[in-house]
Amino acid sequence: MKILTDNAKTELVSLVETTYGEAILTMQRGKEEKELVIAHTGLSEVVYESSVDYYLDNLGWTQEQFDDYWENGGEDKEIDNYVDGTVDYYDDWSAWEEIA
């Protein structure tokens, strides 16, 4: 009996933000490439909303603390984490198959 294994790794190919505010993530798994729209109104806005909720609600930061963090490198860090997390999510074969 032959056991099939999926050793393919999902990798980020590109991230493009259109003039309309869409952020389109292109990922590759093996030889297959797929695109996924991860933001319709700008990636920064989407990531800001989830980040501010996390830091204020879960970590107890003030809005002023968060604004300082966001303006001093936090925005780039949070966007990188968001993109990395999305790619990691689609590193599973069943999740990969969900992308149209």
Rank of each mutant, 00 (worst) to 15 (best):
2 K>Y: 15
3 I>T: 11
4 L>C: 09
4 L>A: 10
5 T>M: 06
6 D>K: 07
6 D>N: 09
6 D>F: 01
7 N>T: 15
8 A>K: 13
8 A>C: 15
8 A>M: 10
8 A>R: 13
9 K>I: 11
9 K>C: 04
9 K>G: 01
10 T>G: 02
11 E>S: 13
11 E>C: 07
12 L>K: 08
12 L>W: 03
12 L>Y: 03
14 S>C: 03
14 S>E: 07
14 S>I: 07
15 L>K: 05
16 V>L: 13
16 V>D: 14
16 V>F: 13
17 E>G: 01
18 T>D: 00
19 T>A: 08
19 T>K: 15
21 G>V: 14
21 G>H: 06
22 E>A: 04
22 E>N: 09
22 E>H: 06
23 A>V: 14
24 I>D: 15
25 L>R: 03
25 L>H: 02
26 T>N: 07
27 M>C: 04
28 Q>K: 10
28 Q>D: 09
28 Q>H: 06
29 R>A: 01
29 R>P: 00
29 R>D: 01
30 G>V: 08
31 K>Y: 10
31 K>E: 12
33 E>W: 11
33 E>L: 15
34 K>G: 01
34 K>E: 03
35 E>I: 13
35 E>W: 02
37 V>M: 10
37 V>Q: 08
38 I>F: 01
39 A>P: 05
40 H>E: 15
41 T>N: 09
42 G>Q: 11
42 G>C: 06
44 S>F: 08
44 S>R: 14
44 S>W: 09
45 E>H: 10
48 Y>C: 11
48 Y>V: 14
48 Y>L: 08
49 E>S: 15
51 S>K: 07
52 V>I: 15
52 V>H: 04
52 V>E: 09
53 D>G: 15
53 D>C: 14
54 Y>K: 12
54 Y>F: 12
55 Y>P: 07
56 L>S: 08
56 L>C: 05
57 D>R: 12
57 D>E: 15
58 N>H: 13
58 N>K: 12
58 N>E: 10
59 L>F: 05
59 L>C: 13
59 L>T: 14
61 W>S: 05
62 T>A: 03
62 T>E: 06
63 Q>Y: 08
63 Q>W: 09
66 F>A: 00
66 F>M: 02
66 F>C: 00
68 D>M: 11
69 Y>S: 00
69 Y>D: 01
69 Y>A: 00
70 W>Y: 00
72 N>D: 03
72 N>R: 04
72 N>E: 03
72 N>Q: 03
73 G>R: 06
74 G>A: 01
74 G>H: 04
75 E>W: 01
75 E>S: 04
77 K>M: 10
78 E>W: 13
78 E>D: 06
78 E>T: 05
79 I>L: 03
79 I>P: 00
79 I>H: 02
80 D>Y: 09
80 D>M: 10
80 D>Q: 10
81 N>F: 14
81 N>L: 11
82 Y>R: 03
82 Y>A: 00
83 V>S: 05
84 D>Q: 11
84 D>R: 10
85 G>Q: 02
86 T>H: 05
86 T>C: 09
86 T>Q: 09
87 V>D: 06
89 Y>M: 07
92 D>P: 05
92 D>W: 04
93 W>I: 15
93 W>M: 13
95 A>M: 11
96 W>H: 02
96 W>D: 01
97 E>H: 08
98 E>P: 02
98 E>F: 02
100 A>F: 10
100 A>I: 04
100 A>G: 12
